[in-house]
Nucleic acid binder design. Structure first.
Lengths: 194, 194
DNA sequence: GAATGTACTTACCGTTTGGTAAGTTGTCAA
DNA sequence: TTGACAACTTACCAAACGGTAAGTACATTC
């Protein structure tokens, strides 16, 4: 169960990239987190871009694994969709680093389309879209995508904004909001599909 | 109507910060956009942080202006809220730089809480929350905030993801989705408040 | 016409950046 | 016991970073 150096590098990199973004995090800082030099990091990953790509790849693998688990556990498409969206929300609240990283990638990848893992969201989104369509046949593909993205946004945006909201509204108020957010989100999902 | 150098700097900075983030955009690059040196920029703004602060401030002023205009034009709170959210959505679709900048600030401001304009979202959010509560009295403050944030997220997330989605799904499909997004969003808003 | 201020420039500075080159050290197999 | 490989290190490097200092060019004002 002891993590390899490589895995430790990936974990540290995920954290720092999520916090400061690609440009804001330096490979030297990431390496220092493990008490190693940046050349040790370069030895394992070649260069900074490749490291970033690997972080993204490992993240997308975790995402995919989560989803296929849900798909197996519930046969009803409506229930499936609800569970997928809520599980994604819970996952992002629990692992804010990943949530922030995904958001950053959404903002940045326009510029560097050559990065590995660029389209890893595609399968994930396609899956949700077709689930929406099988729940409510009235939806066109475009409509279904719009709905999926609205629901995804409703969840992800909140997960990512947590620290900022804590500052704006205070931890007390935000604890309340966090508590009722999931129930409210569930309602929103059902309403969107009706 | 001719923009001052200072205004031109602000515009160029907004664009580049939105595209690359605070660390990714260098003051030299911003200045080069106007054919000037970075020392000209420093002459006007002192340092990079202050420039970023000014960009944020001017952005928040535009946001506030938009909202008070809407508040004046429609007396019914339900209509007001719907219009505020939709106007914000349209604004972000039209000025994607601002949308991206706000998202970036949401991600980054945790780390540098000293930045000017840090809480400029507060008034905006408070306003939406109280409007939600006056539309539907059943909502607690925490619930209202949750709803507001879900709706805001639904809109903002989509606006920001545009280039990525164009890549994933193709411009054709995305044009369709864009077209029906607003109507779908309006439905979602109404459903969330019922 | 001298002084003042604004809008810049060139010339630097120290630090940090991502990256290369060339070891060193330990392990493990033939 | 030698040879090969992996996992590092120290020593560099050129370029870019944000920022300072000192000057130039041009109005405006007294």
């Amino acid at each position: 169960m002891t993590a390899t150096t490589r895995e430790q590098f990936l974990a540290a990199a995920e954290h720092l990239f999520a916090e400061k973004g690609f440009y804001g995090a330096s490979i030297a800082t990431i390496a220092r987190e493990l008490g190693l030099t940046k050349q040790a990091l370069l030895h394992h990953f070649g260069n900074k871009e490749k490291l970033y790509g690997e972080v993204l790849r490992s993240l997308s693998e975790r995402l995919a694994a989560n989803n296929s688990e849900i798909r197996e556990n519930s046969p009803d498409p409506a229930e499936q969709l609800e569970e997928m969206l809520l599980a994604q929300f819970r996952g992002q609240m629990a692992h804010q680093d990943s949530a922030r990283l995904i958001m950053r990638e959404l903002l940045d990848n326009e510029q560097r389309a050559d990065r590995a893992g660029n389209w890893y969201l595609k399968d994930y989104l396609e899956e949700l879209v077709s689930t929406v369509q099988s729940v409510n046949r009235k939806f066109s593909r475009a409509q279904a995508l719009a709905v999926v993205y609205q629901l995804l946004g409703a969840a992800h945006y909140f997960a990512v904004s947590q620290p900022t909201l804590d500052n704006i509204f205070g931890k007390r108020q935000m604890a309340d909001t966090r508590q009722c957010f999931e129930a409210q989100l569930r309602q929103l999902i059902r309403a969107a599909l009706a």
